[in-house]
């Protein structure tokens, strides 16, 4: 099943700069595996060492947090939008000076 995956700004360097990419899968885990195959390194900061999901990155299937849909086992359907949302502090540019 084809889904749209919205890539946050900080991860776009792993996705050839794309804000949205397509991936395949019936569950979130399938989608992440497919994403990693297409864009190596993209899920490095999404998945923890034990294979689960980091708590400082949230993933949504449409507008639902996957934590309440079974996390990696969350079912995804044709045309769903997956959003990856890392914690953002904002204003970091201030410190680059």
């Amino acid at each position: 099943m084809a889904v749209q995956v919205k890539i946050p700004t900080i991860m776009r360097k792993h996705a050839d700069g794309n804000a949205k990419v397509e991936a395949e899968g019936a569950t979130l885990e399938d989608v992440l595996i497919d994403l990693e195959a297409k864009y190596p390194g993209i899920t490095k900061n999404v998945r923890s060492d034990d294979g689960g999901l980091h708590r400082f990155i949230n993933i949504y299937v449409n507008d639902e947090d996957v934590r309440y849909l079974g996390s990696l086992e969350a079912k995804v359907g044709e045309g769903d939008t997956i959003s990856i949302l890392p914690a953002v502090a904002g204003g970091w540019a201030d410190r680059s000076r």
């Binding site: 708590r55 914690a87 502090a89």
Partner: peptide
């Protein structure tokens, strides 16, 4: 409830990658 703990150091982009 959204993010229980801050991201560990090294997992957020370096400040120089910022810009707004």
């Amino acid at each position: 409830c959204l993010y229980p703990e801050p991201p560990p150091p090294g997992t957020v982009p370096s400040c120089a990658e910022g810009g707004v």
